[in-house]
């Protein structure tokens, strides 16, 4: 199984950004790059070389699904696992997000103390199957 060390996270709300940073860097021990918009993520993804992308669905301008679509066309990024975060966890919405090629959907709000653990469990499942 490949190493799981770096996460690129796209979230526009500064309050949630800081919680994610604590949850993933301090509690989870990951290297984290925070981006506040889809465009910023597109600009940084190749340079940061994340193992996984954590992507908010509702973003100003280019939203999460559009960002995922644009990323899929970047060389070397197309196959990165993407996990969506959304407050709307109705089955329709979740099925739609998965059909776009996300490996999972995480409900907001999340528990910062267990977020990293859940992502590691997902990582194992992605690489087991």
């Amino acid at each position: 199984m490949p190493n799981f060390e770096r996460i690129l996270c796209v979230e526009d709300d500064p309050d949630i950004q800081v919680v994610i940073q604590v949850a993933l860097e301090m509690v989870g021990g990951f290297g984290v790059k925070l981006c506040a918009s889809g465009q910023e993520a597109l600009d940084n993804v190749a340079g940061f070389q994340p193992d996984l992308i954590l992507l908010d669905v509702m973003l100003p301008g280019m939203d999460g699904p559009a960002t995922l679509g644009a990323m899929r066309r970047l060389p070397g990024v197309a196959s990165l696992p993407v996990v969506f975060m959304t407050a709307k966890v109705q089955p329709d919405e979740v099925a739609h997000l998965l059909s776009l090629g996300a490996v999972a959907v995480i409900a907001k709000p999340f528990d910062p103390m267990t977020l990293a653990r859940e992502l590691r469990a997902l990582w194992r499942q992605v690489h087991a199957g």
Binding site: A104, A107, P112, R117
Partner: peptide
């Protein structure tokens, strides 16, 4: 003491 809503993985394919 801090109590958060547990992190919920709403869905993943291939399960």
């Amino acid at each position: 003491a801090l109590s958060w809503v547990p992190t919920k993985v709403a869905a993943q394919p291939g399960g």
